[in-house]
Simulated scan of single mutants.
Amino acid sequence: MTRALRTLALTTALAATAFSAPALATDQHGAHAHTPSEAHATLIDRARNEIGQVHFQQGPTGVLITIEMDGLPESAVGWHGVHLHEIGDCSNEDFTSSGGHINPSGRSHGLLNPDGPDNADLPNIYVHENGALRAQLFTTQVSLNGETDAPALLDDNGSALVMHENQDDHMSQPIGGAGARHVCGVIEAAH
């Protein structure tokens, strides 16, 4: 083979590789190409007042959760447990319609528990004296649509984010002593 033919063959092979690489990259992510990578929830209190929003973003290894609330009563100042619940329903006055924690593997509750955490466990969040809350949390224990082989928040029966009356001690069963459910939001795909 002459030098000119070798150069032409190599150039043709490189060009074919360059044009097929984007197609390969697209195929690699095809399983989740049409699923939402973001979700949101409107937070309500027991009086059914809208008091905040939650934004969920799927990352490569987990979900980033951004929580914003305003107008919380003075009695709410302090730390509160927050968990992900297995049903996207906040219709009951006490928010028990959201079911229990997302926990298909049956692990014990608590970020500090040697037999935990369950998939619903998140760090505590803090309500300030002015009734406002701003927090960002990250968890590898769930996904939006199964992207990381973790339970999907946007499954057939949905999910909810629930804020409890007290802080979570991250050890006690079944919910770390966090108490009653005071705030709830149904998690929905962002369009």
Score class of each variant (00 low, 15 high):
182 H>T: 07
5 L>F: 14
33 A>E: 09
23 A>I: 06
79 W>D: 15
189 A>C: 15
53 Q>P: 04
183 V>E: 04
164 H>S: 04
67 I>R: 05
22 P>A: 09
129 E>C: 02
65 I>E: 14
7 T>M: 13
89 D>T: 06
53 Q>F: 04
160 A>F: 00
172 S>R: 07
8 L>N: 10
151 P>I: 00
137 L>E: 10
19 F>V: 06
36 P>Q: 04
49 N>C: 03
166 N>V: 02
183 V>L: 12
42 T>P: 03
58 Q>L: 11
8 L>I: 15
92 N>W: 12
179 G>S: 09
174 P>W: 13
10 L>T: 13
76 A>C: 05
167 Q>D: 08
76 A>P: 01
96 T>W: 04
124 N>K: 00
70 D>K: 05
112 L>S: 14
165 E>F: 03
175 I>Q: 06
73 P>L: 11
18 A>C: 12
191 H>D: 15
160 A>L: 02
35 T>V: 02
164 H>R: 01
169 D>K: 00
47 A>G: 07
57 Q>A: 14
129 E>W: 04
117 P>I: 04
149 D>F: 14
29 H>K: 03
70 D>C: 09
109 H>L: 03
151 P>F: 11
168 D>R: 02
149 D>Y: 08
190 A>E: 15
100 G>W: 07
79 W>I: 03
19 F>T: 06
143 S>P: 00
105 S>D: 11
13 A>D: 08
6 R>G: 09
111 L>R: 00
174 P>N: 10
101 H>A: 15
30 G>F: 06
124 N>F: 10
5 L>Q: 13
83 H>R: 05
186 V>N: 08
18 A>S: 11
65 I>S: 12
16 A>W: 09
25 A>G: 04
127 V>W: 12
37 S>V: 03
99 G>T: 06
99 G>K: 01
134 R>Q: 14
79 W>H: 15
16 A>L: 13
147 E>M: 08
110 G>K: 00
92 N>L: 07
133 L>G: 10
24 L>F: 14
25 A>V: 08
51 I>H: 01
22 P>V: 05
139 T>A: 04
80 H>C: 08
145 N>D: 08
41 A>N: 00
51 I>W: 02
154 L>N: 03
125 I>M: 12
109 H>D: 07
22 P>Q: 01
134 R>I: 08
83 H>T: 07
184 C>D: 15
34 H>G: 03
46 R>N: 02
180 A>V: 00
13 A>M: 10
